[in-house]
Design a protein around this nucleic acid. Sequence first.
DNA 1: TACGATT
Length: 258
Amino acid sequence: MSFWKMSTLQVSYARPSSASIRDANLYVSGLPKTMTQKELEQLFSQYGRIITSRILVDQVTGVSRGVGFIRFDKRIEAEEAIKGLNGQKPSGATEPITVKFANNPSQKSSQALLSQLYQSPNRRYPGPLHHQAQRFRLDNLLNMAYGVKRFSPITIDGMTSLVGMNIPGHTGTGWCIFVYNLSPDSDESVLWQLFGPFGAVNNVKVIRDFNTNKCKGFGFVTMTNYDEAAMAIASLNGYRLGDRVLQVSFKTNKAHKS
DNA sequence: TACGATT
């Protein structure tokens, strides 16, 4: 006896691959963290038919990163949405959003490969701090450097209850470091080279001007371990790179004021 | 060019 295994096929119309729908994908940043995907679609739907939408979230906390994508049916709709929404404040929002055409998602693997290479333990020069005594000394060193009694994440290492707490530099995926005074022609490799020796680097980013593609003078480095990040900061803040003196600190939430 | 983010 034989039988047929029944299965379900999903069927949909193919979208025409014409120029009219090419590059209709938008990248949106500066979104309120509370904005849902539905609300994002509602905001953009006035400009045309939305094919897909997405809000990027932190892998650990699940909270919005304030960044998302909207793909319209047609290029012209995306263009109109940029005109209408770029630099605008959604109702209830305190900050304006940025709306621009998205980059092609394919070509971004080389950085990830580099990331793996530089996380290889035998590249670490000072080495990770394993011992409680070293941690204690490091914490005191940092307290002296900051001139204040700091909150020490060391005492709660390994706990997951940090989620939602506002600790400078801490993100769901590591410790985020702000690096200022990079030269205009800097690229990611300089950040890997500077920070890699101190331990596990998850990610580096040089912030560039959209038009000139030159570095805007700063960047970010995310490191896995607090001790290593703290040691990198203590060592690299004030470091002279070429004719520039770097300023290195944990990332803060707000723009610099002074 | 003083705190991003590219599925």
